[in-house]
Structure formats: C-alpha cells, structure tokens
Design a protein around this nucleic acid. Structure first.
Lengths: 262, 262
DNA sequence: AAGTGGTCTAGACCACCTG
DNA sequence: AGGTGGTCTAGACCACTTT
C-alpha cells in the first residue's frame, strides 16, 4: 500500500519500548489501547460500535490477526459483544465480576485486587502420614508424609475463611515453603517455576457451621457458608495441593460469568 | 512444498462432507479428531505428549494456525496442558467436569447430558408489574410488566431445585414462550435467534432452607442448599432473564476447572 | 543444533448484515 | 453492493527445551 515511499509517523503499536521484554504480547497491548482509547475514555458508551477491524489495523499499524486476537480478549473479558456483519458492541460496565471463581488465584490475591487487606491468624504447620483419603486425593501411597497448613484468613481484620491445605512432602521443601509463605500456600507454589502449577478442579457445596467452625469464624452456629473442595494440579496432571476452604459469604461474593458453548 | 511430486493420500480433514454446512469449524473438526485418535482411543495416556503441531498439520492436512486453534480448545477444555519447547501433555481424568458451572446451559441440559431425566412440577405462569428490585435487575421502569415463571425441577423424579425466572414482557411473547416451553425458559430463549442471548452473570451463595422451601424440596428444615442468582444478557448487554435458583446439592454437584490468568 | 511451541504478518475467500 | 466479521492458509521469525 503505502510503505513504498516512507514510513508513516503514526504511533505504531509495538511489543514494548525497551528490550522487547515487558511480558506483554502485541494483542494485549492493542487490547489495552482499545480500552483506553475507546471504552474507558468515554469516547464510546454502552451500545456503541468499536471501529471496524480494518480501521483498528490501520490505527495501530498491526495485522488483522492481531486485532482479532485483541478483540477476542475484550470479548472474553466481558467488555464487548461481537456480531457478524455488524461489529463489536461496547457492553455496559456495570457488572464487576468481583472474584472470578473460574480463575486460579489465592484469597490474598482476590482480597488485594478488590482493595481489601488480607491477613492470617491461627497458622499451624504439621506433617502427617497420608491416610486413605489423602492418599486418594493426592494420589500418593498411604503413609507418605503430607504437609498440612491450616489457618484463618482475615479480610480487613475480620475472620473470613478457614483454610486447610495438604501438600505431598515429596514435591515441596517444607522449610522453603515456610520461608516464602506470605499468607498463601498457593501463591508460593504459583511462583515456583519448577513446580509448573497449572490448574485446579473445585467443587462448591453449601455447608452449615458446626460449633468449632462457628467459633473460628465468629459466626452463630448454623450459619450457612460455602465449602470449596479444591485440588490443584501441575501441567502433568499430578496433584500438588488439596485444599479445603470454608468461606463466610458475607466477606466473599462468588461471581461467575457464564458463556454459551465453551 | 511437496505437491510437486507426490500427493499424500492422507484423509485430509475438511469442513464437512456435504454442502460444507455442518456448523463445525475446521479447528473443531481437528479437535474432535485429535481426541478420537489420541486421547480417548487410549493410544496415549495421561502424561504422554501429543504429536507436534507440525506432525498434526501433515496428518490432518491443515495449516498450523488451524492446528494451534484446535490445541487451544483442548487446553481450554482442560484435556491437555501445553509447554513451550516441549509439547502438549495429555491430562488425566480428562473426561468429566460434570456440570461446568461456567457454562451457560439449563438444568435440563446438564441433567440430560449426565444421563439423568429432567422433569418439571408445580409450574406457574404469572404477569406482575415490576417492583423496585425487578426494575433494577432487569433495567426496566417500575411498573413495566414482567413474566414470572416458577417451578420445581425434578431429576429422576426427585425434587432437585426450585426455580423462579423473571422476564421483561416487552422482550418476549408470553404465549410463544409458553408454547415452546419444554422445561427450561433459558432453552427457549437460547433457541430464539432474534433474542441474541449471549452470557450470564451468576452469584453463588449458601442458603438454609426455611419451611416452605424445605417442604418444596422435601428436605428437612435447616438443610443447606446453594442459591444461584443469575442475570442473563443478550449481546447488547441488556438483561433478558433474572433467575433465582435454589439447588439441592445432593442432586447437583457444582464442579469448576480453574485456570491461571484467564 | 535441532525440535518444539509462541507470535505476527499478509492475503484470500466466505458468511452475514445493512443500505 | 459494500462493509463487517469469520475462517483458513502460508510463511517468517522468536523463545524455550532438550540433546
């Protein structure tokens, strides 16, 4: 087209300014630009159409594949809808999705991201031999050592969740985990590049507080809480944590965006 | 390339046999083939590597982009992990995730897919003017007519959930919905191509059965159930259903695969 | 060094929606 | 008819892992 003569001085979007290492991909960068330039800037409002893919290609000087990838992200993030033959429609940003239940992240991360202060109390570390249940959940032989970490999670200094994590000792160095622990066992393991932590399967159930739990969470006996039974796996599909969490729903809203198909 | 001399007689994967209209995309077709040929066929087992992307391109005679798209689907579906420089690793117990809580589908669909029989009882249809809460949830003026559909959902003839759906009357033709209703309001709307139903935001909370609910679900008073507060939106981000569901956890397990980032 | 996945480009053609 | 998104291809180059 036009590169015959000179390069346009248009602010072409590139991977990053410096040594091309910002962790950000080109599509992510384009997503960010689209959000800044059109969505949060209030240049467009809910129901309006984004510029067409072709226009965005010219604007940011990237290929259509890159623009399409960026648009897909915005769609999956719930910011726009896309209609064939029409365009990308800006959605109302009213709904927040406070804690994406489908995202693998720690309570500390969720709390911090939503502007709250996460804390830990009644922390205890134990090593026990695996019983039948632990053997099944962690897929290790009965009797193998298991690190048990239990604690009360505080949000803004109020009891919010009771958490017990079970880790196969052969996978983790107990003293190392202890040293790097800042409130979340999951975060320590997520940061460890050798463990290759990848995903978790959770099951959500309602639960009624019995006396010890009620006392711990400082709620009346009989209060309804959410129980999350979670197994975290590495990329090879081996269990690395079995976690049991009892959550006070007054401190944690569990929101979820559900989509067709997928 | 290689079409100069010999053509492979390999069974090139194409969009569909007939008039190219099966609704299935090429990447979806390739995904299906990969699952059939390598994962469920037990040719590979958990921890094994899929053939490389290049090999899959040759095998199915498609471009690398198509193969990568197929692989991404398998990843998002939780069937494989992918590691840079290594390959795609088959994950264990790939074949479950009974009720993906993150998927927009009806109770009937979930029940049927898991081999159960869905039923409906105590069905009632009403039209009421929107009060303040309905006005807020459905984003319509107070007083606007709202269709209220309540019923007991049965799974294998046992009470499993109490459901109330609220629909703005201006969006739906009540008699039409009634006529096409086969147990699920959501399914009727999902099938309607004019409504453009797109996604839902749900919030999950624990709930303790009071007397009327306990009686309806035939459970003891004080039983813990899950309460799902769900708003369904169309592609323009307009609410089309507000649904309230009380679920007996003994009939519905809510599983969720959680991934990093995303 | 060789092989793998990760990223990005350029271009072609199709399906859909709107005038 | 013309514009928009949807799909697929071919190829280039980079980053990562293994040998």
């Amino acid at each position: 087209m036009d590169q015959s003569s000179k390069k346009r001085t248009a602010p072409r979007v590139t991977r990053s300014p410096g040594p091309s290492r910002s962790g950000r991909s080109l599509p992510d960068e384009v997503s960010r630009r689209i959000v800044n330039d059109f969505i949060t800037s209030e240049k467009l409002s809910a129901g309006d159409l984004l510029p067409s893919e072709g226009q965005l290609c010219e604007l940011y000087r990237v290929s259509r594949s890159t623009v399409r990838s960026a648009i897909k992200s915005l769609y999956e993030f719930g910011l726009i809808s896309v209609r064939n033959g029409v365009g990308a429609i800006v959605l109302p940003r009213a709904h927040e999705i406070p804690h994406g239940l489908d995202r693998l992240a720690s309570i500390d991360t969720f709390a911090t991201e939503t502007g709250h202060r996460a804390g830990t109390a009644d922390l205890s570390w134990n090593e026990v031999p695996a019983d039948a249940e632990l053997s099944k959940k962690l897929r290790i032989p009965v009797g193998d050592p298991v690190l048990v970490v239990s604690r009360l999670k505080l949000v803004d200094d109020e009891p919010a969740a009771w958490v017990i994590d079970y880790l196969p000792s052969h996978l983790v160095d107990t003293s190392d985990v202890k040293r790097r622990f800042k409130g979340s066992v999951l975060d320590v393991l997520l940061d460890d590049e050798n463990l290759l932590v990848d995903y978790a399967d959770s099951e959500v159930r309602p639960h009624i507080c019995d006396e010890p739990l009620a006392k711990t969470l400082q709620r009346p006996i009989g209060t309804a809480v959410l129980y999350l039974d979670t197994t975290v796996f590495n990329v090879r599909g081996e269990p690395v944590i079995w976690g049991r969490i009892w959550l006070d729903p007054s401190h944690f809203r569990f929101a979820l965006r559900r989509r067709r198909f997928s």
